[in-house]
Simulated scan of single mutants.
Amino acid sequence: MTTKARDLGLGTGKKARLTRMLYRHGAGNGTALFLPYDQGLEHGPRDFFANPAAGSPSYIMKLAVEGGFNGVAVQIGLATKFYWEYAGEVPLVLKLNGKTEIPRDGAALSPVNATVEEAVRLGADAVGYTLYVGTPAQERDLEQYREVRQAAERLGMPLIVWAYPRGAAIEEHGGKDSFYAVDYAARVASELGADVVKVNFPHPEKRTGVRPPYEQEYSQQEAIGAVVRSANRSLVLISGGEKSGDDAMLEKARMSMEAGATGLIFGRNIWQRPHDESLRFAARLREVLDKYPR
């Protein structure tokens, strides 16, 4: 069954902000297309080499407006210095935590660097939190997540959880984008109170070391359908993931929406292209969303 923002039983603050994002921006039909731009922190400037113009946050903000996105997700520094010019034209999702890729280790923890109060001050319509499921630092991660969740509830701010399986134990059980790992992460985020869950598209063919019954053969449609169900009454956003052919990404978008997802969150797959090509691909994604009103 498709979960709708209006049926979540949320408080008025969260309901007002989610309704504004999903029904007054983008397609305006309850579906969503978000533009994340936290890769400069997560990966460094190397992600902008493919399209140097994308290194400018102003370029990204304008692209989000031009492309009819439901929101742009950025870290606190960029939100403070660049969002003001486009405030009210495109919703802001303030990412509250993040980490560099240095050092790379299995004990991933994404430290909190901003607050829900700052999100309110900046005019955000949601906050984002990256939760690493399965790492040795999971206990500390859940502690800082609890504080964010409580603040979001107190201030009526929708909470979007980037539910990411990580760590050596995950790699021993199919890998971070296996059906097992993605499905587990979606369930964890839902049980911990996420209003919206962001996950990668699952790969059911990755079965080495996974738990039963994930070692069985599943189609991609069966896998993404199970992930959406595991999120229960949390809305689901599917990530663009690693860049592949346009037709393959559009087909994954279609399967995601067919499974009951609320929408898509595509970053590098969009802004690493030249400007006009970015807008054309965003338009093709919106055509998929238009067929699945919520």
Score class of each variant (00 low, 15 high):
R187E: 14
L155Y: 13
A231E: 05
N269A: 12
D7T: 11
G77L: 14
N97K: 03
R273S: 08
S58Y: 05
F69G: 05
E205Q: 10
V90D: 07
R294T: 05
A50K: 11
Y23R: 08
W84N: 11
S256W: 04
Y37I: 09
W271E: 15
L22W: 01
Y132L: 02
I170T: 06
H173T: 11
F49Y: 15
R46F: 12
I238R: 02
A152V: 06
G267L: 09
P52V: 14
R294K: 05
P165F: 01
N29I: 04
P36L: 14
E101M: 06
Y218Q: 12
Q216W: 05
L142M: 03
L35G: 12
L92M: 11
R233W: 08
T115V: 15
M157V: 15
V161K: 03
G30K: 10
Y214H: 00
V199I: 14
K243I: 03
S244P: 04
G40I: 14
L279C: 09
R146Y: 01
I170K: 00
R6Q: 15
S58N: 09
A27V: 15
V228D: 12
S219T: 15
A16W: 12
G267V: 06
S244K: 10
L8D: 08
Q220T: 07
L10D: 03
A163I: 03
A282N: 12
S230E: 13
R166I: 09
L192N: 11
R104I: 00
A226C: 11
Q221I: 07
K243Q: 03
V197R: 02
D38N: 12
A87L: 01
T208C: 00
D47T: 13
D276W: 07
V199N: 06
A87G: 01
G40V: 13
V196T: 02
M61E: 11
M1T: 14
S56K: 10
F266A: 09
Q272Y: 09
F34K: 00
L250K: 09
G55R: 13
V210M: 07
G106Y: 11
E191Q: 10
T2E: 06
L109E: 10
T3V: 15
V72D: 06
M249P: 02
V196N: 00
Y292Q: 02
G193S: 01
A87C: 04
V90G: 04
G67T: 11
N51D: 12
S256D: 00
M157F: 14
L237R: 08
R104E: 05
P204I: 11
T262C: 06
L33Q: 01
Y37N: 13
Y214R: 05
Q216F: 06
A194N: 01
N113L: 14
Q272A: 14
L22M: 03
V227Y: 10
A151K: 09
H275L: 11
Y132T: 07
G156F: 02
N113D: 13
D247C: 05
A114H: 13
Y145K: 02
R280W: 07
K252Y: 00
R6M: 13
A114R: 04
L264S: 02
L94C: 07
V288W: 12
V120A: 12
G267K: 12
A259W: 04
E153K: 15
Y145G: 01
V210W: 06
